[in-house]
Design a protein around this nucleic acid. Structure first.
Lengths: 327, 327
DNA sequence: ACAAGTGTTGAAAACGTTTTCATAATTCAT
DNA sequence: ATGAATTATGAAAACGTTTTCAACACTTGT
């Protein structure tokens, strides 16, 4: 029923080997190549990628495993990754783990079974810490969140530096009782927390941090409760866009005026942070650059498996808006 | 080097056929099944999905082709689709076309070459109109946007009805000079435009529509120019979340107070529409339901290829907020 | 004119599975 | 006890490609 390469070969009056070479880049005379092209068109032939991958042992595929596809940070990164992959003639298998390590394990096994050329991975902290040498039997680049130190390439933000910049800015604006609400599932959130704490210490201020699942509703509940307590913070640092949204919702629900009653500074320059009133001060991550660099590292790792491990650290850009009393 | 099913067979002292059956659901005695399981663990065997798919001629894969993965509508739908696929033991290949028909063609060809079991597709208007019988040689369910009438299953919103509801609401609130800004690339936008026009006519009002690429920056430019003209509309209906965002930006840039100077009503209940001041009146789409229904239709079509074409129309829910002078 | 290249081509092997098909072992009805 | 039906197993074919290998047809340098 379905038309295969032997049908094309028969139609063109050549061998299957010649058809295969004509379709690829093998040496074929111009005359035969034209015959083959005509036969392909005439038969409506479509190569079978499963067969091709099996025989050639080259899947031309990379995996991209992210924690939350609804988070604009990851969708933006995935766009950059796909563009780079597409330019290199590769396909991307996009996987969404929902910050769930069981799903991570499942997708990592899938990557093995698909025989992908490599994987770009944003792991949960639990998985990153449990990973030993050899657990990832394919070239891997960690993204956003570093894996076990020294084992794999990674491209991450200067999280501590970015957090410190937010604290410095808040201090300069006159805030002192600055709290921090950070995600509980990623090493990135942990680094941001540490950067926050270090900066607070540097300014001689008391750090006060809480952890929460990196989702808007969880963050809203946590922030709302916090803001009700006596001695509540007069400014909040939030470790990603979802948590920032939750905190903003909580402040509004409590009727707090921003920045007078509560200042807000967070991560991820999502479109809406500029739409609300006042605009929210955020660290903008170079999302396209992160995706592109990750693909670059991955390709180089695939080409040269034994080269030393590399870590690319990119800087965020602080965008100062009304939520911290700026501009 | 890499361990295959014959290595497992050798380790377990059985034939490859038995290993295959033990791994699948073939009839194997308990004793041998245990031996095979042990051998699998001992060897660290991972099945090669390419080989499996080639031999079994069952890819266990569906394609999902959307127009813009950054649009929260599509990410939400894709989540629902993936969940349903996962429950059925299927994989999803997610493709993003950027509203570009060349990329659509490329991905449709990829779907053929991957020999997917079926495809869920949100086509551009250009592609939908150009599609004839037999152009899609796999089971296909159109989503969000209907394809050529009567050829394929589809699950869509009652776009005309939803648009009309927005117009009715605006009229009830006392607005008369109501303009409409609609996307130019989708049949969905077209239906929303028609629904708007019909409702305006029903109220004895003049319709006034413009088209724009469904992206925030394009919509902002178009809306901004429009709002500068004499006789500008006092209310605007916007055909999706991106265009709504553009219009909101334009209004703010022009210093127009909402809803006093300009009322806004649009589609897609994205998180930020509730965060801005005033909140934006929108039609909420049943995104999870859309994805789940699409998968259901697709599975049924795969199981029974010759059943009559079905079209599922879901209703949106109007969420009335301050941007139209409501609540 | 001859040996040695240089390039094109086809036959057949190979990729790692699943699925037929035949066979051996078991159960069951008589 | 015997033949028929059932069940578990293995050998080998099959899935649709790419790649090896040998053969062939040319050039080319001498």
């Amino acid at each position: 029923m379905t038309v295969g390469i032997r049908d094309v070969a028969r139609a063109a009056g050549v061998s299957t080997a010649t058809v295969s070479r004509a379709l690829g880049k093998g040496p074929v005379s111009e005359a035969l190549r034209a015959q083959v092209d005509a036969a392909v068109r005439a038969t409506g032939y479509r190569p079978n990628l499963s067969a091709r991958r099996l025989r050639s042992q080259a899947t031309q595929t990379v995996g991209l495993i992210v924690a939350d596809i609804r988070n604009p940070f990851f969708t933006a990164v995935s766009r950059a990754v796909e563009d780079a992959a597409y330019d290199a003639g590769m396909r991307v298998i996009l996987c969404n783990t929902d910050e769930d390590s069981a799903r991570e394990a499942m997708y990592l096994r899938l990557m093995e079974e698909e025989r992908v050329s490599g994987v770009i991975f944003a792991p949960t902290r639990a998985t990153a810490e449990a990973l030993g040498p050899g657990d990832l039997p394919f070239p891997t680049v960690f993204i956003d969140r570093a894996g076990p130190p020294g084992l794999h390439d990674s491209v991450v933000l200067d999280n501590a530096g970015a957090s410190a910049a937010l604290v410095d800015h808040l201090v300069a604006k006159g805030f002192a009782r600055i709290g921090g609400l950070f995600g509980s599932t990623s090493s990135t959130a942990q680094e941001r927390r540490d950067g926050y704490a270090a900066a607070m210490a540097r300014h001689g201020l008391d750090a006060c941090v809480r952890s929460v699942l990196p989702q808007a509703d969880a963050a809203e509940a946590a922030a709302s409760a916090w803001l009700e307590e006596p001695g509540r913070p007069e400014a909040l640092v939030l470790s990603n866009g979802q948590i920032l949204m939750g905190a903003f919702r909580a402040a509004r629900r409590r009727g707090l005026r921003i920045p007078n009653d509560l200042a807000l500074a967070g991560f991820d320059n999502e479109p809406w942070t500029d739409l609300v009133d006042p605009g929210l001060t955020v660290i903008e991550q170079p999302v396209a650059e992160i995706g592109a660099q990750a693909m670059r590292l991955l390709f180089e790792r695939i080409a040269t498996p034994d080269q030393p491990v590399r870590k690319v650290t990119l800087s965020g850009r602080a965008i100062l808006r009304g939520s911290t009393g700026a501009a």
